[in-house]
Structures are given as C-alpha cells and as structure tokens.
Write a protein that binds this DNA or RNA. Structure first.
Lengths: 134, 134
DNA sequence: ATACTACTTGGAGTCAGCTCCAAGTCAAGT
DNA sequence: ACTTGACTTGGAGCTGACTCCAAGTAGTAT
C-alpha cells in the first residue's frame, strides 16, 4: 500500500501520516529501494488505530508512549494495559461531556422549534437555562 | 458573583473567562464603579452554556456567532436554531467517534487482561486489530 | 536523454484556544 | 498617606497538532 492509498482509506493527509511516523505515533514503515513508503498490513493496523484514537482526542503523546512500550517487548505488557486504561478514563469523561452537551442542544433546539412554530417566545430573559431544578 | 467565584464554580481560569468575554463567546459582563466584573444570573447562564459547549468541542466561532445573533434580537430566531442544529450534527459525529474508540479500548484492554492473567500472549504479530471480519 | 510526476526530507509556518505578562487602578487595612 | 492584594487592560507568548514548503531523488513516458 502506498501512502496515497492509506490516506484515502483513512481520510487523512500524507503530511499527517508522515508526521505520525516521524514523531512515533506509528512505527517506522518499510520503504522500497527508492525510499518510498510501502505500508504492510501491520502498518495499516497501526494507522487505523492511531486515527481512531486521535478521533477521540487521545493525545499524540499517549500514542507515542504506547508504540514505544510495544517496541520494548513483553516486559511492558502491564505498562501498556495501564496506559490504555488511562486513555479509557479520558475518553469516557469526554463521552459523558459530549452527551451532556447533546442533551442541552436538544433541549434548546426544541424550545426554538416551539418558538418558531407558534411565533411566540416562551422565554423573556436569557434562554440559556436547562430548567435543571437543582 | 465575582470572576473568582465563577471560575471556581465552572472549573475554568479567570484568563479564560476574560478571553471569552473579549472575543464574544459570552456577552459583556456588567462592572462595579471600580471596573470590576460582577456576574449576574444571566451572565452565569452564558458561562455555563459556553463551558458545556466547549467541553463538547463546539468551536469558539460558533459560540460567538450565536451570541451575536442573540443580541440582534428576534429576527434571528431561525438563524440561531440552524446554528444549534449545525452544532448538534458536529457533536453527534464526535459522540459516535468517541464511542467507537471506547469499544476499541475495551477490546484491547480485555486482551491485555487475558495476556496478563494467563501469562500467555494471545497474539503474535500486531495486536492492534479489532477482529472485525469486514 | 529529457521531461514529468510522485515521492522523499528537515524544517518552518499556521491555527485554535488559551495562558501569561507588565503596567496600571481601586478598595480596604494600618 | 501608604502598603497590600485583587482586580483591570491590551498584547505577546505558548501548546498541540498538524500543514506547508523548498530542494532533492526515483521511476515512468516520450
């Protein structure tokens, strides 16, 4: 697989892919005699993983650390698992925040829909409360 | 409410709060004669909303646009609803990506747990596949 | 052989979103 | 009156994550 094919498949640019390799977000990719990157199935798995993790805001640094540990071999199994668990906490927290925001957006939009349908504004001061009776 | 109290309550710094006001993520806050910010209940609602939206990655620009429309009055009701719906699409997409990453992390961690418990590595080449029989 | 295109490198530049800083002001305490 | 400390401003600086660029090379087409 060429860099172009991988880019197209995973929706990132060649620059990003080269950057990931340079800083260690993915391990070094093999080259042809001419020096051109040739992505193996394993390379592709690493790319897929990196893209997925980055999509969820897992920081570059964490991915670099994981790759480093992976390359150090089996003694780092536990360290890698701990790293993954750390990442999971972060992602879960963000997931919760995103869900809270979805709830807020849905509520606000529903209020706007009513206002637009009836022509009447059902709020007078600031419309930005969620009617959370705390 | 002082800037300090608002900061503490919403977990952001005074610098961020002033920055939000400066660029228009929240409307201008009233001041005492001495020029010190005094947050009203409405101001606080705007802050709460901004923090919530930012936590879900809604871009600053979108929040600024919303505040601007809000201040222009009732003719912008529909524009504001459209903006919210746009934001909702973005947040939902991110939510899906985060969920996909959670699934991947859970799978990977479960594999590590097995490997650590049995002392046996259940993979030999690259462990980064999700066994998705595509 | 020459031109063309797609790749390569290292390094510099960009962008969003803060974050920090210097210099100044104000209210309260001594 | 003076010090202290929390606030104010505008602007500069920082960070993470790309993104772009110039200069060079390798393989293919004519």
């Amino acid at each position: 697989m060429t860099i172009k094919e991988i880019c197209a498949k995973y929706g990132i640019t060649a620059d990003t892919l080269r950057y990931y390799e340079r800083v260690g977000v993915i391990p070094a990719v093999r080259r042809t005699k001419g020096g051109i990157r040739s992505y193996s199935a394993e390379d592709e798995k690493w790319v897929e993983n990196a893209v997925c993790m980055r999509n969820a805001g897992v920081p570059i640094e964490m991915l670099i650390e994981y790759v480093k540990l992976f390359q150090e071999g089996d003694e780092t199994l536990e360290a890698r698992r701990n790293l993954l668990m750390e990442a999971r906490v972060t992602v879960q927290e963000n997931l919760d925040k995103y869900q809270a925001t979805m709830d807020r957006l849905n509520y606000k939009i529903s209020r706007y829909d009513v206002a637009l349908k009836t022509g009447v504004l059902s709020w007078d001061d600031c419309e930005d409360d969620l009617k959370k009776d705390k």
